[in-house]
Design a protein around this nucleic acid. Structure first.
Length: 193
DNA sequence: GCGACAG
DNA sequence: ATCTTGTCGC
């Protein structure tokens, strides 16, 4: 199992080299998607929500997830089913439950998904994985190796996944925890029942 | 060796 | 993430 995770690290290194940190601008976003996964034993239930104008589309799929959860390697468990759940949903921005750049190898699940499907992604996590929280101005930044890799707002952590930047994260966080993520969380948890 | 550790 | 009762707070 040792060489397996070593391989995953190499993969994450490749992902990190291909991330594009660019400003998206939430004003240009008219369609947005969110995904979350809930479990019932080894079965994962992925919920994808798409919101455009006032139209909301939902999708839930399920599948076996046997690999163990190891901090820093969440993507190997959830990225495959999340990508599948998003299939066919056109979105200007995707919100993923987990970190993006705020990761030991700058390759959290939001980054992996964003690079693989080449779409704008922002990672929103409920707890910290790495970094120290530093107050500057009126905000709390997630600092890793002296670099601002994300921002903390309230009890949540936002970091760029792909084709977005810190400013986008700040804009998003200023609106509070996204309703669409709450919906995805709720839907996935309902599905496992 | 010890603490930290997305979901 | 999930297992779970009562309990503190808005």
């Amino acid at each position: 199992m040792d060489y397996f995770f070593n391989f995953l690290k190499l993969f994450q290194g490749l992902v990190a080299k291909n991330v594009k940190i660019t400003h998206l601008g939430l004003d240009n976003v008219s369609s947005i998607c969110a995904i979350d996964v809930a479990y019932k034993g080894n079965i994962g239930f992925a919920a994808a929500i798409r919101k455009a104008d006032n139209q909301i589309e939902k999708r839930v799929i399920s599948g076996n997830i046997d690999l163990p959860y190891v901090p820093g390697f969440l993507f190997i468990r959830e990225a495959p089913i999340m990508i599948k759940a998003l299939e066919g949903f056109q979105c200007d921005l995707i919100l993923v439950d987990g970190h993006g750049l705020a990761h030991p190898r700058k390759s959290g699940i939001a980054t992996v998904i964003g690079v693989l499907i080449d779409k704008p992604v922002i990672g929103v996590a409920k707890s910290k994985l790495i970094g120290e929280i530093v107050n500057e101005g009126n905000r709390e930044y997630i600092i890793v190796n002296g670099e601002k890799v994300g921002i903390k707002s309230g009890k949540y952590f936002y970091s760029p996944g792909n084709l977005t930047d810190l400013d986008d994260c700040i804009s998003l966080s200023s609106k509070g925890y996204p309703d669409i993520l709450k919906l995805a969380d709720k839907l996935s948890k309902e599905a496992k029942k």
